[in-house]
Design a protein around this nucleic acid. Structure first.
Length: 267
DNA sequence: ATCCGATGTCAAT
DNA sequence: TTGACCTCGGATC
């Protein structure tokens, strides 16, 4: 679920549903109970996202920011108000007159000062989904890394918001060897890669899922794709474009997928 | 009923 | 490079 597009979608939805209201705040699971009590009755001002990090900004004198990171298994479920009884695992629950939000299993859910939220953001690279993103910063960092490109694309200090699906699919789209040292990428290709990241993440926000391959294009589709994501290589047995068996290999703890035919080794 | 993997990150080696 | 953390649901017995 959660790459940058998911988080930006949440920010947008939460902004629309909760901004300017005073939701009740609770923590049935308990670990956010004190913080929830602090916020209960405060006005929800806005929601924003940077990469995979989500912030709820409240009208609170000292700690106005709820900083959320879903990690690998976190989910944010929303309902028409008042929503169902929260299950025991709901860490952070918001309810106003129109909507309810249940946050489950987040990697991070903490109350921060504005300065602390700022510090979190400063550790992140430019986010293709943000208007204020400066791709030059990512380019400068990329040029200094000799690690494989596919590994650097997951480094949130370089580009914030890409995850395991987008990094594999972006490398595929440009026929890039994922093991190419990042510094060997040329500027023109980086620029196209960045532009594609912006476009594809935006499409992900719109569709609420990752869509890389256009509808009719597949010549070798696979039936067993539960989620129905339109992908070329990620978790596939064969390349969607050329049917070559997909290769997979752990790279820095994450499974990397690529098509050895469409993405030949750089040497 | 149990196992296992998952679109993530950090700290400890 | 590994382990810990957070939780769910599909697959498997």
């Amino acid at each position: 679920m959660p790459e940058g597009h998911t988080i930006h979608r949440l920010a947008r939805d939460h902004q629309r549903w909760f901004a300017g209201t005073r939701p009740t705040v609770a923590s049935p699971q308990g670990r956010f109970a004190d913080q929830a009590a602090t916020l209960d009755g405060c006005a929800f001002l806005r929601a924003e996202a940077h990469g995979k990090h989500l912030a709820h900004i409240w009208d609170h004198p000292t700690t106005p920011v709820v900083h959320i990171h879903l990690g690998l298994f976190g989910r944010a479920r929303s309902y028409k108000s008042p929503g169902p009884d929260p299950r025991d695992s709901v860490r952070y629950q918001l309810v106003n007159d129109t909507r309810a939000l249940h946050l489950i299993g987040p990697n991070t859910c903490e109350l921060l000062t504005s300065a602390q939220w700022q510090a979190v953001r400063e550790r992140l690279g430019p986010d293709p989904l943000r208007d204020d993103a400066e791709p030059d910063i990512a380019w400068a960092l990329l040029q200094r890394r000799r690690r494989p490109l596919a590994a650097v694309l997951l480094d949130q200090r370089v580009i914030a918001g890409l995850g395991n699906v987008y990094r594999a699919e972006l490398c595929f789209l440009f026929g890039l060897d994922p093991f190419l040292p990042a510094r060997d990428l040329d500027r023109a290709t980086f620029d196209r890669l960045w532009a594609a990241a912006v476009e594809l993440l935006e499409e992900g926000v719109r569709q609420r899922r990752i869509v890389i391959a256009p509808k009719g294009e597949s010549i070798h589709d696979e039936v067993s794709r539960r989620r129905g994501d339109r992908l070329y290589v990620y978790k596939r047995r064969r390349c969607r474009r050329c049917a070559t068996p997909i290769r997979k290999q752990a790279l820095e703890g994450r499974t990397l997928y690529w098509c050895p035919s469409c993405q030949p080794a750089a040497t």
